[in-house]
């Protein structure tokens, strides 16, 4: 059998990709935000796909991109969005010395695996040129559909079971009757008839004050000059990001926008207009 020679191009690809992949994987240990970790791991998956293709496994490389970066990691990102992006991970150790012991065990595992792989008496690499003669996909399919056809059928059952299991795990049983628009409107009118405030059935006031601010965080002003809390969206109120009305002093400092202290030119202009009208 002919011995495999590894081209220098493959070596370049390896030495560029391998440090990047190790860096991305280290993000798994040191990054704080879950989304950053997910993107870093997705990058590692892409690197692995390129390495599969370099290792004469183009079919697996494409499957890796489709299955891992396309489906699995995006599923991870979906779930991260679902259960809260900014959920903080407490860095307090609940078991004393757990982190140190884990690093020690991981280092031990690394040393062991590296020692075994570098010192094992492995045969000379053969390469897949002969096996990939009719393209890699055909070669894989020949083995998959002959020696492994029964396990392949079993994976079908496994995937269906997984899909049904995921559906039943995330399915929520409705506890009360469904509340639609009609039920909501009836309930609101009933509450209003029983003496609740009219803001239940009328439009709520929009945010903003006339002429000075109309940003979404500025409460509207009612007829008595008091701020209307309802006019700001709930999100801003919960976050405590709503602005407050300017006080009398602040108004005086900023200078009144209209009414008092009108520039003379404007007054004179207005007077001229009136005169013209009178003529």
């Amino acid at each position: 059998m002919s011995e495999l020679t590894i081209s220098s191009g493959e070596a370049v690809i390896f030495w560029i990709l391998a440090p990047l992949m190790v860096l991305g994987a280290l993000g798994l240990l040191f990054a704080r935000k879950t989304v950053h970790i997910a993107v870093a791991v997705a990058g590692v998956m892409v690197g692995l796909a390129i390495m599969y293709i370099a290792n004469e496994a183009p079919f697996l490389g494409v499957a890796q991109v489709v299955v891992y970066t396309g489906a699995v990691m995006m599923l991870f990102v979906f779930v991260i969005m679902l259960i809260g992006v900014d959920a903080k991970e407490s860095l307090k150790e609940t078991l004393a010395g757990q982190r140190f012991l884990a690093l020690l065990a991981g280092g031990g595992l690394l040393v062991l695996v590296l020692a075994v792989t570098t010192r094992a008496a492995l045969p000379d690499p053969v390469g897949l040129a002969a096996a990939n003669a009719d393209t890699n996909a055909v070669g894989v399919a020949r083995i998959l559909f002959s020696d492994f056809v029964f396990p392949f059928e079993l994976t079908g059952a496994l995937l269906i079971t997984a899909a049904v299991g995921a559906l039943s795990l995330t399915h929520r049983v409705r506890l009360g009757a469904k509340i639609g628009q009609r039920e909501l409107a009836t309930a609101k009118l009933k509450a209003y008839g029983a003496g609740a405030g009219s803001s239940l059935i009328t439009n709520r006031p929009g945010p903003g004050i006339y002429a000075r601010h109309n940003s979404a965080d500025m409460p509207a002003v009612d007829a008595a000059g008091e701020p209307v809390e309802d006019s700001i969206t709930t999100v801003l109120r919960i976050r405590g990001q709503e602005a407050r009305l300017p006080s009398e002093e602040e108004l005086a400092e900023a200078g009144a926008p209209y009414g008092q202290d009108e520039p003379a030119a404007v007054v004179a202009g207005a007077g001229d207009e009136r005169k013209e009208l009178e003529q």
């Binding site: 994987a25 757990q98 982190r99």
Partner: peptide, 13 residues
């Protein structure tokens, strides 16, 4: 081997 060890430590830590 390096990637496997990093993954294992991440699972524990």
């Amino acid at each position: 081997g390096i990637l496997f060890s990093i993954g294992a430590v991440a699972v524990i830590v």
